[in-house]
């Protein structure tokens, strides 16, 4: 059957990529992965997964593009107003008690989320003593995030989301725009360290008061999800906080009992100890 053949080809492709390059997508959720592989085929104009596999194995330029297209998620600044409200009202007051704050945005993609946080922290006067660590699997995606440049057409939507999330300033002060692009201010970019980190294979690299890992584990199979939850737990300082996506839950994960909700509606949790 046609469907089975494609599943077989994808399995072989992932095996090849893992063994040849060490990028292991074999624990990604098959349903969403299959759609993404198909999108790569369309975008790169390959007729079959096997042809894509040949290109990845023999053309060095193909792998980074493949990794970027598999890892990039759709995101926006201040996506989910209630979540950012809660960061402002509940999370920041707790973080004020620390002389220095470290925040990890795991799976930062093109950076909109970490820049939204930086804006919020600046408004609350916490930016000078905060360091953000934004990590992603794909170096290509990180390069985009580092630049902090977004289409100027997206800024209206971002401004609306900022206001919905309780923003009271003039949002245009945070970027410089020409007719095509908007570049975020360097004061925001300077508070963020962008670096490569693979949740499948890399380890704890620091201790954080706040970790965001939103809409990342929805792409993972159970085993990998449990690994990432364990990694995050060990990366959090005692009483450190964790933000998940709006439809992700801490329930049924190995560390469920180790967290108390800060606000269950927006899936924000705090390490009990």
């Amino acid at each position: 059957m046609e469907g089975d053949l494609e599943a077989l080809e994808i399995e072989l492709l992932l095996e090849a990529v893992a063994r040849r390059y060490g990028y292991d997508f074999r624990s990604y959720a098959p349903a969403s992965l299959r759609r993404r592989v198909r999108a790569v085929l369309r975008h790169e104009r390959f007729r079959t997964v096997s042809r894509l596999q040949e290109a990845i194995l023999h053309d060095p330029a193909m792998l980074p593009r493949f990794v970027a297209q598999l890892s990039v998620g759709v995101t926006g600044m201040f996506r989910d107003a209630g979540f950012y409200q809660c960061i402002r009202d509940e999370v920041i007051p707790r973080l004020r008690t620390y002389p220095f704050v470290r925040v990890w945005v795991a799976g930062c993609s093109s950076g909109e989320e970490v820049y939204s946080l930086a804006i919020l922290f600046q408004e609350e006067g916490l930016l000078p003593r905060t360091r953000f660590y934004a990590t992603d699997l794909s170096e290509m995606v990180l390069e985009r995030a580092r630049k902090g440049v977004y289409p100027v057409t997206s800024m209206r939507e971002h401004t609306e989301a900022y206001i919905a999330a309780g923003g009271r300033e003039d949002f245009s002060q945070y970027y410089v725009a020409d007719h095509r692009n908007a570049k975020l201010k360097s004061s925001l970019r300077q508070s963020i360290v962008f670096s490569q980190h693979n949740l499948v294979s890399d380890e704890v690299f620091n201790e954080f008061q706040l970790v965001l890992c939103r809409n990342v584990m929805i792409y993972f199979e159970r085993e990998l999800r449990e690994r990432v939850h364990d990694l995050i737990y060990r990366s959090l300082a005692p009483l450190g906080m964790l933000g998940l996506g709006m439809r992700e839950t801490i329930d049924f994960t190995p560390h469920a009992a180790d967290y108390a909700p800060v606000d269950e509606r927006v899936r924000l949790y705090r390490r009990r100890r």
Partner: peptide, 10 residues
């Protein structure tokens, strides 16, 4: 999926 619902933000 076979046993569970999954979400995506693609």
């Amino acid at each position: 999926g076979e046993r569970a619902f999954r979400l995506s933000v693609d």
